[in-house]
Design a protein around this nucleic acid. Sequence first.
DNA 1: CCACGATCTGTAACGGTTTACACCTCGGGT
DNA 2: ACCCGAGGTGTAAACCGTTACAGATCGTGG
Lengths: 347, 347
Amino acid sequence: MHRLDAKGIDENAVATISEIAARAGVSVATVSRTFSHPHLVRSKTRDKVRAAIDEFGYRPNAIARNLRRQRTETVIVIVPQIQNTFFSGIIHGIEAVAHDRGYKVLLGETRGDQVRIDHYADLISTRTAEGLILLGSLLPTAVRSAMRDGAPLPIPLVLACERFEGLACPTVAIDNVAASKTAVAHLVAQGCKRIAMISGPKGNTLSEDRLAGYRAALAEAGLPRDPACEAHGDFSIETGHAAMRALLALVERPDGLFCASDEMAMGAREAIRAAGLRVPQDIAIVGFDDIRFAAFMEPPLTTMRQPAKEIGETAMQLMIDHLEGDPAACPHRVFASDLIVRQSTLR
Amino acid sequence: MHRLDAKGIDENAVATISEIAARAGVSVATVSRTFSHPHLVRSKTRDKVRAAIDEFGYRPNAIARNLRRQRTETVIVIVPQIQNTFFSGIIHGIEAVAHDRGYKVLLGETRGDQVRIDHYADLISTRTAEGLILLGSLLPTAVRSAMRDGAPLPIPLVLACERFEGLACPTVAIDNVAASKTAVAHLVAQGCKRIAMISGPKGNTLSEDRLAGYRAALAEAGLPRDPACEAHGDFSIETGHAAMRALLALVERPDGLFCASDEMAMGAREAIRAAGLRVPQDIAIVGFDDIRFAAFMEPPLTTMRQPAKEIGETAMQLMIDHLEGDPAACPHRVFASDLIVRQSTLR
DNA sequence: CCACGATCTGTAACGGTTTACACCTCGGGT
DNA sequence: ACCCGAGGTGTAAACCGTTACAGATCGTGG
């Protein structure tokens, strides 16, 4: 299939190493060495091999090489949804480092589906990929049971942007508690007295951390905490919109809002507009992530910037260190996140 | 590395087929058949094999299987930039179909770099991947030279969203000429007399098609065409902003704007705001793509919707048909694109 | 002219699976 | 008693590289 054309001469199929060896009048070992360890081959011999290769178009078969070397130099990146701008920023960073270091990136999208995540994690057991970079808050079943049993991790794993209690593996993230505290303190400084939050899904460490930061900031400012002001979404525009409508229905309307993602802030902003209220005069908003579109909202959105690309780059770097270096090492990289102040909080 | 723990007992390493065969007291062929052709194995024998597998945790080595089968069931998707919302929508669709059909998706980002695109295309020659889905407007050098020589395509290729004159390969796209014509006709219907366009990069078929549609609509409406009103960007917010600033500096200011991407429309909208003008009263805007954020712009953006997910799904479908079916077939799928009318053009 | 080391090259094992082919067993028909 | 076919199973040859090891070649110093 797709290998032989009508004349039986294969234009596409690459010659094998033994054909090249025969054409060049050397052994397969020499051809192999010409690629992998050229310094072991006399330059005259190399030229013979190169000539044969130029003539017959040899490209070494990566599958055979992988089998022999027991390596694929491939990592799989599991992401809840590729369309999320923050995640695609991380993937951008991952791909950059992977490419530079000669690794390949397999992409798996989960959409919150445990079956899909396990399917992709299985690619490690079957040796299709060597390691797993996890962007979401869902863990493969195999990892979960290892955690429960206190067993070592069954697969090389790096967490980007999420952390799990009791899971010892390389992690890169920001300090979500501190970041949220800063964000909410900014709202306090702008004079907000009743600050609501739309966080991520319950039970998700990242969401809990951001919620904790929010609460800490309120406490520090001496503002009362009202459970009715704590809403949850799934980081999407739609859930931000819905959550804000609920918050607007409260008898005591909030005058400040902190969202755990810019997308939710976008949805919330729309709900506020629909209610005939103004941002920031009636309600000031702080988002999270600083996605590309935050600066182009109306008004431009104040937000906690996460260095998505750097997070991705670091995650891939940690993965390579893990695969090529000491697999017992378990570094944690924490990035700073900056508050980007724009008009949505300036009143 | 990472294979043996302190006791020399390997928790992670999967047993090989021959170990399982020995444990189960059968031959390797039988173990293999238990996986691939269970109906060829007596159920009692299957149970023995299953028991051994359960006990020792065997997972077949995909590399060895791939080598033997001469298949990897992997396609590589080359995208100019993963962060572009339209592209990530397509990838979303590609991944969905790939997962359902048992294929894997390798991700390659080019950022307009010919070296990177060739690097990724090379994964086909080395048999790492079986086919290439191309999202951008850059072609691998190997494909380009085949085109020039009139030779058959050197690799299984599917184009999503871009087409090339004289390149016969499965393609999925929309009718950019017609879509642009519709978009610009809408501006005409809204009473715009001087309509500018910010298109994509020059020399790009997609850009040219959209420009052609724009010109056709002007001609049909009897409006004069002014080369000064034809600007170019690279689909990004920033270039949209820059292009709009130039358009605003014209002595005769446009009163309508058609952008070849929503992102550029976003940048343009910002430039218009900065100039103290109103949308749509002073300048009406139509974008392209209908990315998730278009509906949340201020005012919400009228735009040509492209069915990104469906385009991706179809591209992957065509790729599988090409790999598993008739490689000579060269279907072209053209999707409808709908004009989504929002406030940015309603005056 | 020989010994010796350095440099280069070849042979063959190996990685782990799939599958063509051969073989064996067993039941049923003649 | 014999043949035949169906159903199961095993053997071994692929698939295509890499690399340990052995062997060949070459240059140099004695």
